[in-house]
Write a protein that binds this DNA or RNA. Structure first.
Lengths: 343, 343
DNA sequence: ATATAAAATGTCATCGATGTCATTTTTGGC
DNA sequence: GCCAAAAATGACATCGATGACATTTTATAT
């Protein structure tokens, strides 16, 4: 690596002058500047950003640990963070954190050090991995948790109201006349799964209806494949539901696929509702009624929080939770309940 | 920010000892170490990674500019790069580079400097944006181009053989007895679109068949919505094709949707083939026959190339192109051509 | 030509860490 | 208790850049 000194030597000027050519070209005589520029070119010089940052007290990047970048949630949140970072002029360093490998501490350490990360964002389910949070605290890193199952005294959280959203969906289906509604839950490790499920129950309670039997809850894991199995189970029920609310859009898409396979029309024979407003929600036919997750708003909030940390040594001790509003999007996959023999 | 000196003062030792506690704890007496650790804790110390990197000659992150992170291609490649980086122990800084904003040079500059990026990856269509490439060269940054339309003297390229893959698809359809095959092209800005289209023609030529008429080529843009329009056009043809090859899976999914809407069964009435092996290819019903893009292999190659640059000042002047093998995946959306009235 | 202000350039210290090598302390065998 | 060897610690230089301030050169007015 060539340095500013090599350039200064070749150009016959002081290092400071080279620095000036780089940072305040107008304060250098044209002739000198040209000589310096030529020297830089011939030496193939490029400034050492580390030294610059050290001198200038440079900022660190926002760090994002991704457990499963193929997951719709993570990739969409990732994307929202990119946008929020761009808006705020921040940079983001991303790293895969797959499962818990034996040397995860060393990996995180290198991520913080080599990646120059001080503030990070933890998505589900990483945001619930206590050893990681402890380790981060040890290392003096700060973090924002996204939709954690449990709030943490040391890290603020940005969330949406999964329970309310879920209840809203069921009420939407009630209003269309549905009485038997199946629910495919999400992955058991995600708090959202539990919240969404309890939103379902809450809606029945609020409407003064008896809670649905356990046969109407099929377990899923937010993924397409498991969604197929779950849908098969629900639709094979002797008294099959007239509507299915899947814990996310991917699962809902699986339900739609199974329904088509069985010759059921949507929403004529079966209403299907998802959650997330993922691209797939508009890509399947018919387009899915769903809840739009406020990804971008949440990401912006994250950046705000981190911006507020500037200068502070670490996150303050008090828990703070930022709730972000969502939105029900009614598309074509939900419609009036059709009376079926037996209903 | 507290420094190693603050800690050393409080602990009553030299800065070097504090450094030792951090880097080679065994070389410090237990009692001293504990005192230092306590001082670090009470001062809430965390080491300045910039200074460390400066001293140790730290490496830079791999930079990725994303034009449209929602695009399947970019997000999947992104993901593959994450994996490859993890395998190689590298870090990646990602940034949105949406369209060409007036201050793009300043943005790139900040990305390189603040993000401490020296090597970057340019995906389509950014890899064909000449001003950016020129600017990067000015700044002494190095880059690998992914599937560029035109090769560049200054930057190596990693590609797959779109034309051959496309030809393979058509030959697959030929082998199933299809004679009228529609093609929905990709976005005109992507070289892949042109290559895939010419692969189609090549297959006809190789088979000694007359080239398909222009009515069998509908223009798409790799996106679902445009795919719907294109599918409508092709399927409304007086002599509609018995198979449609869409330039990517998303478009193919749109074709499937339109076909279902029109009551056509797949592959009975219409074979549909995509390209990419995106998640959506397995998420629609029936699962799409498609080409698997060698994302991970390409990403690994990128990391290899960049690793090879270590120490070198900039990319050598000679163009190098790395071709990566693909794979045809036959699923359920392609089947024997059915004789239709008129055929 | 000369004084003087303004512009251009240079010197030195500094950012926060670690490597080198010198110095001090501890350890263990006698 | 003494001495050599080993262990622990410290002083100082260094990484590559820039800020503060000093110095030199140039431009302008007299």
């Amino acid at each position: 690596m060539t340095t500013i000194y090599d350039v200064s030597r070749l150009a016959g000027v002081s290092a400071k002058t080279v620095s000036r050519v780089l940072n305040e070209p107008d304060r250098v005589k044209t002739k000198t500047r040209e000589a310096v520029l030529e020297a830089m070119k011939s030496l193939d010089y490029s400034p050492n950003s580390m030294a610059r940052q050290l001198r200038l007290g440079g900022g660190s990047s926002l760090g994002l640990l991704l457990e499963d970048p193929a997951s719709g949630y993570q990739s969409r949140f990732h994307q929202a963070l990119l946008t929020a970072c761009m808006e705020a002029g921040k940079h983001m360093t991303v790293e895969l954190f797959e499962g818990v490998m034996p040397d995860w501490q060393a990996r995180v350490d290198r991520f913080l050090t080599e990646g120059r990360v001080r503030d990070l964002v933890l998505l589900p389910t990483l945001c619930d991995f206590a050893p990681l949070k402890d380790y981060l605290r040890t290392k003096g890193a700060r973090a924002v948790l996204i939709a954690p199952s449990v709030y943490d005294t040391h890290f603020p959280a940005v969330v949406m109201d999964d329970r309310a959203a879920s209840r809203q969906i069921i009420e939407h289906l009630f209003s269309l006349g549905h009485k038997r509604i199946g629910h495919i839950t999400g992955h058991a490790d995600h708090s959202a799964s539990i919240l969404r499920r309890s939103g379902v129950v809450e809606a029945y309670d609020a409407a003064g209806l008896p809670r649905p039997g356990p046969e109407l809850f099929a377990s899923g894991d937010f993924m397409f494949k498991k969604g197929i199995e779950a849908a098969e189970i629900l639709l094979s029920l002797p008294d099959a539901p007239t509507a299915i609310f899947a814990a996310n859009d991917e699962t809902a898409a699986a339900v739609a696929m199974v329904a088509h396979k069985r010759g059921l029309s949507i929403p004529g024979d079966l209403s299907v509702v998802g959650f997330d407003d993922a691209p797939i929600a508009s890509a399947v036919w018919p387009a899915l009624t769903t809840i739009r997750q406020p990804y971008l708003e949440m990401a912006r909030r994250v950046v705000q929080i981190i911006d507020g940390w500037e200068g502070q040594t670490r996150s303050s001790g008090n828990t703070s939770v930022f709730m972000t509003p969502h939105e029900l999007i009614v598309r074509d996959s939900s419609g009036p309940a059709r009376n079926r023999p037996g209903n």
